[in-house]
């Protein structure tokens, strides 16, 4: 089970004061949380790299968490931001499949995570955009394959990916 908001906020406040032991525990929790956060939306082969990248971002930007505000929405905003960046860059091989990570579930924790999940971003996109982003950027299909599968022309697939990613980046803090 991942630590709740109150515990995470207390650990982060201690980390900002330089408590390395607590920080180690916090990072372990952050790692677990990120793995669950990204499941189904990041190819397994890229998951570790993305989680590491976000953990380094959390470290570099730890001063930007305001102790008077909640911790998880801060972490989720950084995780979403890095994820959209990741989608821009990634063209993964088609054979990698997304795994259903069988993480332990906890109702309160699930509710918090669901509110800030990546799915919440996708629901704000028109279907033609989310569909091609999912196919090309997450499942790893080529533009031609995605075009064939969706019936959109290749240029339309590219345009919809471009517009969809632009919209996703504008939704990082908004969609909840």
């Amino acid at each position: 089970m991942i630590a709740d908001e109150k515990e995470m906020a207390a650990m982060m406040a201690a980390a900002q004061k330089g408590d390395a032991g607590t920080y180690r525990a916090l990072l372990a929790e952050v790692q677990l949380w990120l793995e669950r956060f990204y499941r189904k939306r990041v190819a397994p082969a890229q998951l570790d790299d993305l989680v590491q990248e976000v953990m380094m971002a959390v470290h570099a930007k730890r001063a930007t968490w305001d102790p008077t505000r909640a911790f998880y929405p801060w972490l989720a905003a950084i995780a979403r931001y890095r994820w959209v960046d990741h989608l821009r860059k990634v063209y993964r091989s088609a054979e990698d499949e997304l795994a259903d990570y069988d993480a332990p579930e906890d109702s309160e924790e699930e509710a918090v995570m669901a509110r800030m999940s990546l799915e919440r971003l996708f629901v704000h996109l028109p279907e033609k955009q989310s569909e091609v982003i999912e196919l090309v950027k997450i499942e790893g299909l080529s533009i031609a394959e995605a075009s064939k599968k969706t019936g959109q022309s290749e240029s339309l697939v590219k345009v919809n990916i471009h517009r969809g990613l632009k919209k996703l980046s504008a939704l990082v803090e908004k969609a909840e």
């Binding site: 408590d19 920080y23 180690r24 380094m56 470290h59 001063a63 305001d66």
Partner: peptide
């Protein structure tokens, strides 16, 4: 990675 980040930890003034 956790060890590296923890060993690099310095106190920061939160925003």
């Amino acid at each position: 990675l956790i060890d590296t980040l923890a060993s690099d930890l310095e106190p920061v003034q939160p925003i």
